[in-house]
Amino acid sequence: MKTNENPYIPYYATVEDTWFETGGERAIKTFKVVFDDEEVRKNWNHRPGQCAMIGILGVGESMISISCSPTEGDFLRFSVMRMGKVTQALHQLEAGDKMTVRGPYGNSFPLEEWEGKHVITIGGGIGQAPMRPVVEYVKANYQKYDGLTMIYGARTSGDLCFKGEFEAMAQNEDLSCHLTIDIEEEQWDHNVGFVPQVLLDVKPSPDNTIAVTCGPPIMIRFVLENLKKLGFEDDQIYTTLENRMKCGIGKCGRCNAGNMYVCKDGPVFNYAALKEIPEAFS
């Protein structure tokens, strides 16, 4: 769906619910928002992996992953880490407040192509935000896929997003859900250790499997290394890039990694293609 005739004009959306995922200086707050205009709500049609420019008039806009799957309902979810000007202002919003939204932007995970395969997501920290829709989508269309494995980690249990949901998933026999934290904590009965190590321990078979990974660059580097060790081919691996963005529609020029505009050609990339872009991992 194209938004307005003028793609820079945002829509209004009202925060229906909001909660903190994590605390601290760089807290992550999730917003569940609903478009004010019914027409927009009906026509909005995003796919897992896409992003939106969300913002506050007079402050600015930030590119944020849409962290819900369209299978969940007529709302959007964003999980925002408090970083600078715009994200700080967004954190002030409470239920009933308005934000602006334009999008959806970028390509998406080719979930139709993956039908019949096993999907494994490997995430770290806020990197789980773009992968949550993949998890939710596969869960909602479970019969079309050959199962789902999820590995997700953060520094401490307090830094894990979507904890409640995952705790429930971990109980689900059909799903293989592995949570991990870097350092031992009391009353933590999941894994302890870095995500790439947990990946080796879980030891997923590369047969008929797609691996998706998002997280801090250093984690991604070791995850890619370990996926290779496990026998995954480059084209079985997907990840997302995050470059600074202003327009979201391939005009302002700033988001390029080599000859790719991350806002249009990405943010989702197959590793076989990404490997050829010299700037991709800078």
Partner: peptide, 29 residues
Amino acid sequence: HCFDIQDEVEGFSARRCRTWDSCMFNEYT
């Protein structure tokens, strides 16, 4: 053709505008 997008506020009046930007600036990326 690269540009930045910024909100400018004066009192209660504001505008969103775009301005030329340059890939030769450190802040750009």
